[in-house]
Each structure stands twice: as structure tokens, then as C-alpha cells.
């Protein structure tokens, strides 16, 4: 057990936690009864994926991707791969940050849409529990 933890889990501990968070979110998305809980699970699922993307860009011993001083001119083109790589190793990979930055803000806008749909459902059926909702929908007359 301890050996398994040290060899398999510890090097990828972050990834394991993201997978667990994703499982928690997915489980609540399928199994929870309340619609607001489902939306919360969706948000947790989303943050787990964003966490995964951001951790792809982590470099050991690197600083934040904001340049403190002007990069040396000799680095020049990417063709000088050795010097360019050595300079770039000092900064975290900015590409996942850019992609996920917009994903978070779009995520809150779509969260608003989901909550608005919840309010409309509540106005129509006076409940947010899934089983009651299904019962009330089945009880509706056919021509509605």
C-alpha cells in the first residue's frame, strides 16, 4: 500500500486529485436530485478540467509568465533552440493560462444561463427536485 502510494500516486498526486474531483462532479451530475446541486457538480467538473490544463504548463523552478527584464536579443529566433529553451524554462507556460482565463469567464456566464433556466422551471413547476419534476411533467395533459 505504502509502496503503491510512493511509486504511483506521489509523482502524479495533482493529477489523481483532479481525477477524483472530476469523479465527484460527474457523480453529482448524474445522481443528485436537486437541480442546483447538479449545476454545482457541473462547475466542479469544469474546474477540475481547468486545473488539469493549467498544471500542464507548470515548470519546476519557474516563475510567473511576466517578464521582469527585457529578454536578451541573442535569444532572437526560435531556431536558436538551446538558448531559447534555456530562457523559456524560467517562465511557466503561458498558453494554458490564456485558454483557461477565457474559459472561466465564459463558465460564469453559462452558469448564469443555467440558473436562469432553473428559475424558469421553478416558476412553472414550483419545485427543483428531479423526481417531483418528472412526476409533474407526466401528470400534464397531452395537449400542453
Amino acid at each position: 500500500m505504502v509502496e503503491f502510494f510512493l511509486n504511483t500516486v506521489k509523482p502524479n498526486f495533482n493529477y489523481w486529485v483532479y481525477v477524483i474531483l472530476m469523479m465527484v462532479g460527474l457523480w453529482s451530475l448524474i445522481a443528485k436530485n436537486n437541480l442546483i446541486k447538479k449545476i454545482m457538480g457541473l462547475a466542479i467538473f469544469q474546474t477540475a478540467i481547468i486545473l488539469f490544463y493549467v498544471s500542464l504548463g507548470v515548470k519546476d523552478g519557474a516563475t510567473i509568465p511576466v517578464l521582469e527584464q527585457v529578454p536578451v536579443e541573442a535569444a532572437g529566433t526560435v531556431a536558436a533552440a538551446s538558448t531559447a529553451g534555456a530562457f523559456a524554462d524560467g517562465f511557466a507556460n503561458p498558453v494554458p493560462h490564456v485558454l483557461m482565463l477565457t474559459a472561466i469567464v465564459v463558465g460564469v456566464a453559462t452558469l448564469g444561463v443555467a440558473l436562469a433556466l432553473c428559475q424558469t422551471i421553478f416558476k412553472e413547476f414550483d419545485t427543483l427536485e428531479e423526481d417531483e419534476l418528472l412526476r409533474k411533467i407526466k401528470a400534464l395533459p397531452d395537449d400542453v
Binding site: P65, P71, V78, P94, L101
Partner: peptide
């Protein structure tokens, strides 16, 4: 790598993101 090395030369913006 291209972004980290060239972003400052192309745009003069220190924050690469």
C-alpha cells in the same frame, strides 16, 4: 517557447499572458 521569447519583441508587453 515562441511566445515567451518573442512576445516582448513583438508587442513590448511584459505580461506574456
Amino acid at each position: 517557447l515562441h511566445y515567451i521569447n518573442e512576445a516582448y519583441h513583438d508587442t513590448k508587453v511584459p505580461n506574456i499572458v
